[in-house]
Amino acid sequence: MSKQQQDDIENWLSDLIAEILEIPPSKVDRTKRFDRYGLDSVAAVSVTGMLGKHLGRDLDATAMYDYPTISTLSRYLAESMEAEGIKAESMEGAPQ
């Protein structure tokens, strides 16, 4: 479940980085650090803002520094969203 989520986020991010760099998405290395892609702090805010909107959650720009590649950031987001999902489900199911 989480793997599927992670792949979706990875693909979405790769497409976005490819658009900014004006290169084909297949040329985007998902294990390369964001700063190595030349993304400055403003571009990083732009990317995390768009990603947060896409996922429907608040995403701090510092996430790209804590998880500095497409692959690590996607895994972190997929895992934390799954954890939140489980928590939300168990809260719903909890007796009043």
């Binding site: 900014i20 760099l21 004006e22 290169i23 700063d35 190595r36 892609y37 030349g38 993304l39 400055d40 403003v42 571009a43 805010v45 732009s46 990317v47």
Partner: peptide
Amino acid sequence: EVPNTAFYARDLIRDRIISRVND
């Protein structure tokens, strides 16, 4: 307003060496 470099300055984002100097 904060001009978005990811929109306006993509050619510089693509430039490895200039990005290092920028940072």
